[in-house]
Design a protein around this nucleic acid. Structure first.
Length: 572
DNA sequence: GCGTGGAGCGCG
DNA sequence: AAAGCGCGCTCCACGC
């Protein structure tokens, strides 16, 4: 059962569709539902386990969750449309070929929320207010129905051109399902929030910085360090937050750095370096995750950031507000399970190298990847047991290192693993040539910009050097894209499979945990004590299911490391 | 006074 | 230890 939901001047319009996007002959007429009735109607229809089709999950689902309505599955037209418009798997379809025009049309519309300034945590319950009565919605039911039908048609043609490898349509279909599930999970996690103990956070701040200072003042520890720096550098009015002032003061004292970055400062043994690095560390804590952050982002024991699914070209999520994907280790002790609960923190070990093994079908590297520690396996095979060397070499291959130790190790790596290295080298060459590359499930890299293409036409020697540098830069991007993008494919499937298992446990009446956080290759489940063992099994089973969905039954392990803890700082 | 881009640093 | 991918946030510097 497919149910299309669209904005309507009187609330919402709802239509039954067939899977290909035609009005369902059994019930073809749209019906209009008032804003006040919507949650109840949706809740009732959910009993039939429909797939909800809507313009953007973010437009509908947060308010439904606030009204206590959880749904099983959806189809997010914006996210899926963006994938289909750019995927190599559908590049031959009318949908992709008219995508450019649709994008231009959309740019005439007001910007989506993602381009507006960040808003403080959502006021829940005050939703369902768009569209305002009497105003025509920007996307009518018929617009959306036609878009869905066109997307369905494009998907059905994926992989139909001659000479392409098998299963393209199935893979792309999986990606669309995982992306839509991801949009629901993002809304659910924002709704639930990360359990955050404010008093623990405040204790960490007090221990590191001193008591909370009056607004606009430096905390005591930072004040003391500032005085010490001023004295050591004979610069009585120095503002150590200003890189320019700091650099001048360092130069005056014979410390000839080119920047004030940590790693460069560490080169010097001058007595000012230690307090300077301490200042930078504490200053960062105070400005980025100090009392102001706590006031702005943590409410009633929960941190509720907004996740931006599809916010990164590779398919990773981005976030908005509160720096949710950059919670520093320093304050992870404040992330603490409720009484009678645990946090299960699971991360996919060495995900990107394992994804590369699977993509490239490098059987020699697959032997190393049977080990729980892939780097150790690689070290044993070709780097004289030197794990650090093996790790630097492999990450260098994935990122495109050319200089330094990592660059020097590349030939050695390529001799041992010609297929794996060849795979990323090929992606780099495609990028340098201005082509796009594609993840395992069919998410393609953006085409080169007009300026990039222009630069490749350059004539003078100086311009040519610049163009070559830009080409190599794009090569590093596409090289990384195939791995990072396919890892994101895997992670999206892992998350969707885990959500399905947790929902099944809840439907059984078994106590189950809730997903509360996701970070590229890591998930956090907040879980009643009694459900821990079942949840851990669900996490592991979901990881294995994700591997098989992407790659079938291959002899490469994707192990997850699981920590059951009271607070986040206890995990790894 | 306001917006923007760079520097720097947090995360994977 | 270091320089190669993807992000967001904060501060400062600068131009209007």
């Amino acid at each position: 059962m497919y149910l299309l939901l669209a904005a309507h001047p009187d609330g919402a319009a709802l239509q039954h569709l067939t899977p290909d996007g035609s009005p369902d002959p059994a019930d073809p007429e749209p019906r209009v539902i008032s804003a006040g009735e919507l949650a109840g109607v949706v809740r009732g229809l959910e009993k039939h386990r429909p797939r909800w089709i809507w313009h953007r999950t973010q437009d509908w689902y947060p308010a439904l969750l606030a009204a206590g309505v959880e749904l099983e599955r959806c189809y997010d037209l914006t996210l899926c449309g963006a994938i289909l418009a750019h995927s190599e798997f559908t590049a031959h379809t009318a949908y992709a070929q008219t995508a450019e025009k649709r994008t231009q049309d959309d740019e005439l519309q007001p910007p989506p929320r993602s381009l507006q300034p960040p808003s403080p945590p959502a006021e829940q319950g005050a939703l369902f207010d768009a569209p305002r009565p009497g105003r025509a919605p920007r996307h009518t039911l018929e617009d959306l129905r036609a878009d869905y039908a066109a997307q369905h048609e494009a998907l059905s043609r994926a992989g139909t051109e001659a000479g392409t490898e098998p299963n393209r349509r199935q893979r792309l279909q999986l990606l669309l399902a995982a992306e839509s599930a991801g949009a629901m999970i993002a809304a659910e996690m924002q709704h639930t929030g990360v359990p955050w103990r404010e008093e623990l956070h405040e204790q960490i701040l007090a221990d590191s910085l001193g008591p909370r200072p009056p607004f606009g003042h430096r905390p005591a520890k930072l004040e003391a360090l500032t005085a010490e720096l001023r004295q050591l550098l004979s610069s009585p009015s120095l503002n150590p937050d200003s890189p320019q002032e700091l650099m001048r003061a360092l130069h005056r004292n014979g410390i000839e750095v080119q920047s004030t970055r940590q790693w460069e400062l560490k080169e010097s043994s001058h007595p000012v370096i230690e307090p300077l690095l301490a200042f930078k560390k504490l200053s960062r804590l105070h400005t980025a995750n100090g009392w102001a952050w706590l006031d702005a982002w943590v409410k009633d024991g929960r941190f509720q950031p907004e996740y931006v699914v599809g916010g990164v070209v590779s398919g990773r999520w981005a976030s908005r507000g509160g720096g949710a994907l950059q919670i520093p280790r320093q304050i992870r002790g404040a992330v603490h399970a409720d009484p009678g609960h645990k946090l299960i923190v699971a991360d996919a070990s060495q995900l990107e190298p394992r994804v590369l093994v699977a993509l490239a079908q490098d059987s020699r590297m697959a032997e190393a990847a049977r080990d729980k520690d892939l780097y150790a396996g690689i070290a044993a095979q070709g780097f004289g047991g030197d794990r650090a060397k093996a790790k630097v070499a492999l990450l260098g291959a994935i990122y495109g290192a050319t200089t330094g130790e990592s660059g020097r190790l590349m030939p050695q790596l390529a001799r041992t693993y010609p297929r794996a290295v060849g795979y990323v080298e090929q992606a780099a060459r495609e990028g340098e040539a201005g082509k796009t590359v594609t993840s395992r499930l069919g998410r393609s890299s953006p085409p080169p910009s007009g300026r990039w293409l222009q630069s490749q036409q350059s004539t003078t020697a100086e311009e040519q050097r610049r163009a070559d540098s830009l080409a190599r830069s794009r090569g590093r991007f596409t090289r990384n894209f195939v791995v990072q993008g396919s890892a994101a494919d895997w992670a999206a499937c892992w998350l969707a499979e885990l959500r399905r298992r947790l929902r099944a446990m809840r439907a059984d009446g078994t106590p189950a945990g809730e997903l509360v956080f996701f970070l590229h290759d890591e998930v956090m489940v907040h879980c009643p004590d009694a459900a821990v063992a079942d949840c851990v099994r669900a996490i592991e089973a979901a990881a294995n299911a994700a591997k098989e969905l992407l790659f079938g039954r291959i002899p490469v392990e994707f192990p997850v490391s699981v920590a059951v803890v009271d607070s986040y700082d206890q995990a790894k």
